[in-house]
Structures are given as C-alpha cells and as structure tokens.
Design a binder for these strands. Structure first.
Lengths: 150, 150
DNA sequence: ATCGCAAATGATAATGATTATCATTTGTAT
DNA sequence: ATACAAATGATAATCATTATCATTTGCGAT
C-alpha cells in the first residue's frame, strides 16, 4: 500500500527500466523522471543530486553516480566530457549529434552535420582505424540577449 | 658557476621562455626539453613527472602542474581533455589539428580536415555563436600490428 | 498479503587528479 | 656580491568519482 504517485507515468518508467535490464527502484525512477522533465537536457551528477534534494526527492550522491553509470551502460543516457573535468549526461534519443557550448552561460546547443560525420569516418579509415566513438565540442560565445558577459 | 650542461640548447630554451614572458628556470627548461625530445607528443602531468624522475631530473609534482598550466597560457603547449578525465598536453606547433585516439593502446594520431573546420564554423555562425575553440576526438581501434588486443 | 534473498541504497571512507599553502630556494636586475 | 620578487617543493586541501559495507527494498515464489 505504498503505490502513491501518478501510477500511469511510473508504470511507463518501470517498463522503460525493465526493458533496459534494470529493476524498477524509486531512486532510478526519480532520476529518469528528472531527465524527462528537466528544462536543461545536460546535467552533471551534482546537478541531479541537488535538483532532487530541492524537490524533497532525496537520493544519495553515491546512488546518483551509480545510476548515471548504469543508465549510460544501458543506453538510456549519453555521457559527455566537456571541458572542466566533470561528466555531463543527457537523455539518449537515438540520434547522434554534436554540441556547441557557450563559454559564458554554459548553454548547450546540439547540431548534426552529415558532412562532418563522413569526413571523420574517412579520416579514421584512411589511417587504418575503426571508429568506436567520437566527440566534437565547439566552445563559443552564444551572443544571446540573456547571456551574461556581453 | 653552475652553468653546466649543453649551453647552446639551454640558451635557446631560455630565449624561448623569455619570449613567452616566463623567466628561465631549471624546472621549466627541463619540462620544455622533455616535450621537445620525447617520443610521445601527448603527455599528462603524471607522465612528465615520472619521466623526469626516471632521468634524475627531479621536479616536484606541484611544479609540473604549475608549469604545464603556465605553458598552456603562454601558448607553448595545448591542453586536451581526452576521455578518462586527466589533461594531456602537447607542444603547440601553430597548426591546429584534431585527434584520433586508439582505445586499446592509447596511441594518438593527428589529422586536419579543412572541410570539417569549415562546417564547424558554419554550424556555429548559423546559430549566432562565435567560436572560441573546439575539440574533436575520434576514439577508435588502431588495428596496428603492435597494438595489444587484436 | 507474506517470506526470503539478491540487488539496491545511503553514509562514509578512499582514491585519483589537480590546486592551494607556505616556508625555502633561485633568477635577475642592481 | 646583494636583495627581493618570483619560483619551487613538500604537503595539505579540494573536487569529482568510486569503493566499502551495513541496512533497506523490489520482486518472485509461496
């Protein structure tokens, strides 16, 4: 008798987790929900830990790290190594894309360029390498109205 | 009366450092020499610290970190954030290039593709961003003879 | 609904990379 | 040779992340 919250949604997440080979636990559902509802797609472990704290949905920091790694391995999340050393995660929505990160406000925009993808593949195969993964980050100033510093 | 070693070379490095706005000190000369002579262009702070230890040219680890950061700011070195979390440095030889990193043996190959550069610039300007910097890392298997794991 | 147990969690210690502190040493201009 | 700011080195501190381990929980079998 503890199945309180919006069951429709939680059921969907439970299935989502089960399909990924992970058992449905409260912390995992909370983290998944956060990614599906958060305004910012790209979040670090610390971001998530604090957001959950702020809504009273406490989850231990160690658990947050564990869940992020599991979700990454299960293909639910994609991990990024932006400059600065800490890992940042986003929901995996199937379609690969690269990132432009604003150095002033941290805003992240995604883009995809077929030509770039092809040239990368070419550069690798020309040298006898088999691509496993790649990461392209453009660091820039977004020049937006609401961006601090100019 | 302590100017022992190969003075011609050290003089060049002294000038090199002076030009970069850094005073010529023994630890800085050692680190610079290492980058100019090492077989591997890409090295971490730990790599450098250990290499210097192994040749008896002891330099404190903290000093290695400081020097690397200073050299980066002076434009003598370029810092990279490969997957794995630790910073890796290489001599700045003026010409920008991207990297292919072998996930098996860690070997790094450099490449430059004008089309990729142009498409990146285009992607950024199309979105109103002004590029400051960018990093493209391809992670792959090098398939070389001497590479472990296959 | 209840049991049992492997799996998951949370608090915290431990680790690895990097930075800060501060007393001592070293370039360098005088 | 002198003086002093800058640099160094040993070490403590910090930050992100992982490991440990006692406790709790999801879930299949009853």
């Amino acid at each position: 008798m503890l199945k309180i919250s919006n069951q429709g949604d939680d059921m969907k997440k439970t299935d989502h987790l089960k399909n990924a080979g992970l058992k449905s636990t409260l912390p995992r559902i909370k983290v998944l929900s956060l990614f599906e509802s958060a305004e910012q797609r790209h979040m670090s472990a610390e971001d998530i830990y604090k957001l959950l704290l702020s809504t009273g949905d406490d989850v231990g920091l160690a658990t947050v790290y564990r869940i992020l790694t599991q979700f990454e391995q299960a293909g639910l999340l994609v991990r990024h190594f932006f400059e600065g050393g800490k890992s940042v995660f986003e929901l995996n929505q199937g379609k690969h894309h690269d990132h432009i990160v604003c150095l002033q406000c941290g805003q992240v925009e995604e883009f995809y360029d077929q030509a770039i993808e092809e040239r990368q593949e070419k550069a690798a195969t020309e040298r006898g390498f088999s691509i496993r993964d790649h990461s392209l980050y453009i660091y820039a100033d977004c020049n937006k109205e609401n961006c601090p510093h100019r």
